[in-house]
Amino acid sequence: MTAQTSTQAQVIPKFSEQKKAFSINELKWLINAAKNMRDLNQAKGYLCSYFIPCSNPHGVFMWQSEIKNLEHIPDKNINKLIRPITKVFYTQSEQGPLQKVEFNINKWFMIKYSTVCVATCDPQKSRIFKLGGQLYLNIFPGFLHILRPISTFESTTHLAVKFIFSHIQDIWCSGD
């Protein structure tokens, strides 16, 4: 498993788990705080917990933590959210001078990051799942109400529901 594959395997389960809104300033801080290329994994993980590239529909999905929903962003607009923040490192080669290595988070995400999903809507699947080798992003927002057993409701609610069901059976369905 390569370092890139390893990073991707770590961040995919974290997508859409963030509780606070995406902050470009936090991403900048994580990149600027990195002392070497390996330290950038924290910034990559942060970015990938909010954004995931999608081939159908083409673009990027962004996790909106404050409303617990996804927003589709076309590729042409993604530069407004994922800025081309660059960090330069100098590494010592085995036989020679220091080598300049430049990292750009926007280029990494849009070109080198190879995880791409297809959007689907299935209430029975998790947010991200694999089926036949294809990665899917489940855009199902969840049910509006949480189901509860009928036994947890008061007797007046039971009577009201019984009245409505009787009406449906007798009037709408002609007793059939």
Score class of each variant (00 low, 15 high):
Leu144Gly: 06
Lys87Ala: 04
Val101Ala: 08
Gln8Tyr: 02
Gln99Gly: 08
Glu94Gly: 11
His158Pro: 01
Met62Gly: 03
Cys173Gly: 00
Phe140His: 14
Ala33Gly: 05
Trp172Val: 13
Asn41His: 11
Thr115Glu: 09
Lys44Ala: 05
Asp39Phe: 03
Gln18Tyr: 02
Ile164Phe: 15
Ile146Ser: 12
Lys35Pro: 02
Ile164Val: 15
Thr86Pro: 00
Thr5Gly: 06
Cys173Met: 10
Ala160Cys: 10
Trp172Gly: 04
Leu98Val: 01
Arg83Glu: 13
Tyr90Val: 06
Lys68Cys: 12
Glu26Leu: 06
Asp176Ser: 10
Ser151Val: 13
Pro13Thr: 07
Phe89Thr: 02
Tyr90Glu: 15
Leu98Asp: 05
Trp108Glu: 10
Phe140Ala: 04
Val118Asn: 05
Asn77Trp: 07
Gly133Glu: 06
Thr2Met: 04
Ile111Thr: 14
Cys117Tyr: 01
Val118Thr: 15
Arg38Val: 08
Thr152Gly: 04
Lys80Ser: 12
Phe109Leu: 00
Thr86Ser: 03
Arg148Ala: 09
Glu26Ser: 02
Lys100Val: 00
Leu30Cys: 03
Ile139Gln: 04
Val60Thr: 09
Gln169Ser: 13
Pro97Val: 07
Ser174His: 12
Asp122Trp: 00
Leu70Ser: 05
Leu98Cys: 02
Asp176Cys: 08
Glu17Cys: 10
Phe22Pro: 04
Pro123Cys: 08
Asn104Thr: 08
Gly142Pro: 03
Ile31Phe: 03
Gln95Asp: 10
Met1Lys: 09
Trp108Met: 07
Glu26Ala: 04
Lys20Gln: 12
His72Gly: 04
Phe165Leu: 15
Ile164Gly: 02
Lys20His: 08
Thr7Leu: 12
Pro74Arg: 12
Gly133Phe: 03
Ile171Gln: 15
Glu94Ser: 08
Glu154Gln: 13
Ile31Asp: 02
Ile139Ser: 09
Glu66Ile: 04
Pro84His: 13
Lys125Trp: 03
Cys54Ser: 14
Ile139Ala: 11
Glu26Tyr: 08
Cys117Lys: 02
Tyr50Trp: 05
Glu102Asp: 09
Val101Met: 05
Pro13Arg: 08
Ile171Arg: 14
Gln124Thr: 11
Glu94Tyr: 06
Ser93Asp: 14
Asn77Ala: 12
Thr7His: 03
Asn32Ser: 09
Ile111Gln: 13
Glu17Thr: 15
Tyr113Glu: 03
Pro123Trp: 07
Pro97Leu: 06
Ser6Val: 01
Leu159Ile: 07
Gly142Asp: 07
Phe89Ser: 07
Gly175Leu: 02
Met110Pro: 00
Ile111Cys: 09
Trp108Tyr: 15
Ser155Tyr: 12
Pro123Gln: 11
Leu159Val: 04
Leu144Ala: 12
Met62Asp: 00
Cys54Ile: 15
Ala34Cys: 03
Leu137Tyr: 05
Glu26Met: 05
Gly96Leu: 08
Gln134Ile: 10
Ser114Thr: 07
Thr120Val: 15
Ala160Pro: 01
Asn104Val: 06
Ile128His: 07
